[in-house]
Amino acid sequence: MSSTGNGRPSDLWANITVGLVTAPVAAGVAFMILYSIGVIGLLAGGFTLESWVQVLADVRTWVTLGFSIWVGGASLLTSLVLALGIHTILGAAPRRRALHGLWYAPLAVPPLVAALLSVEILGNAGVLARLGHALGWIGQPLDFPSPLYTRCGAGIVVTHVALVTPFLVLLFDRLARNERVEGLTEAARTLGASATQAWLRVRLPVLMRAATPALSVYFLALAGAFEVPLLVGAQYPPMISVAIQRRFSQFDIAMRPQAYALATLYAVLSAAILFLVFAARRRRERLERGA
């Protein structure tokens, strides 16, 4: 392969790379579509949209999707506000030191462990409940207002926020360096901006502008989360990944096409969101270059 410039071998290699990643995903989606429309499968009887009609007409589908978007959005927004606040308080890391090592430690916590900790700390018989009992605030485990297993998804949101906020703090720290946010803030201050004005008119828009692609991927990851809703979510409504897993695990093979239809629906929606975000960013960049 060429080691210099833009020779065709380089392009070919890049295409192969992307093919290695997209081929399995594309094949998987194609398989799910064909299965869901009855073209292939153990009980396939030829092309039919029956599974799709059942899934789309089922109110539970839309409740699940809406609930996933709600939990993903609430988790991301809460984490965003917290992370921006923390990043602002921590301020510019001194030139000779990056962000304190402590802030990297949460990267070591997987979603399953976070969910387990939520149960043991925030659960009805968790550490906080026991502390409340010791202080005389509650009598029985059920007296403790645990956010877990609630229909509004509070337990899922709290766990996600604990997981995602440190990531966002690190993200903002890195972006602030790349975008020279401290220098820009100083420029704004000497132009007459108060600390609040500099934050609102410079730091916030510059960081959000740079972080949008990463935030959109985070949103999709949160909306499509599996482990945390599995352990701390209510039975109903389930989040989309749990709903798909439940349908897929059912003994009734006849339900399999519906499982694939639901999975395809979510795959297409999430791919579309990703595409829209990237397209919007490209359009903005093109406008800025061409203006």
Partner: peptide
């Protein structure tokens, strides 16, 4: 006085323009 109240503008070595 705070920097924004001095009416003194500082120009950095690198021209820092607001990217947004």
């Amino acid at each position: 006085l705070a920097p924004n109240r001095r009416n003194i503008v500082y120009l950095n070595q690198e021209p820092l323009l607001f990217p947004h």
